[in-house]
């Protein structure tokens, strides 16, 4: 998935989970986004896992504090699951 698409997908998932009309900015931090508390973080984690088809480690889960932190995890994990090009 192109990087811009992945960022847009993460922003969309966060907005849907929070019930927000507009996606948060790509550089938004959790504490700056209305309704993004620890309960919401857990729901966002599960939604991201369902969408991308991977399961986060505990360390990854605890590192989530922003849209960018989720994008970093999704980028790394989706790259790991792509077939190697010869």
């Amino acid at each position: 998935m192109p990087a811009n698409d992945l960022v847009a997908t993460v922003r969309s998932i966060v907005a849907a989970t929070l019930g927000a009309a507009d996606p948060p900015a790509a550089d938004a931090r959790a504490r700056e986004v209305a309704g993004w508390d620890s309960h919401a973080t857990v729901q966002i984690i599960f939604a991201i896992e369902d969408h991308f088809g991977f399961e986060m480690t505990g360390e990854e889960m605890e590192s989530i504090d922003s849209v960018a932190s989720i994008v970093a995890i999704a980028t790394r994990r989706t790259a790991m699951s792509m077939p190697a090009r010869s």
């Binding site: 857990v42 889960m61 605890e62």
Partner: peptide
Amino acid sequence: GRAAAVMAKAQ
């Protein structure tokens, strides 16, 4: 469950 680490960290 798996959410425990996130919730406990926030607490």
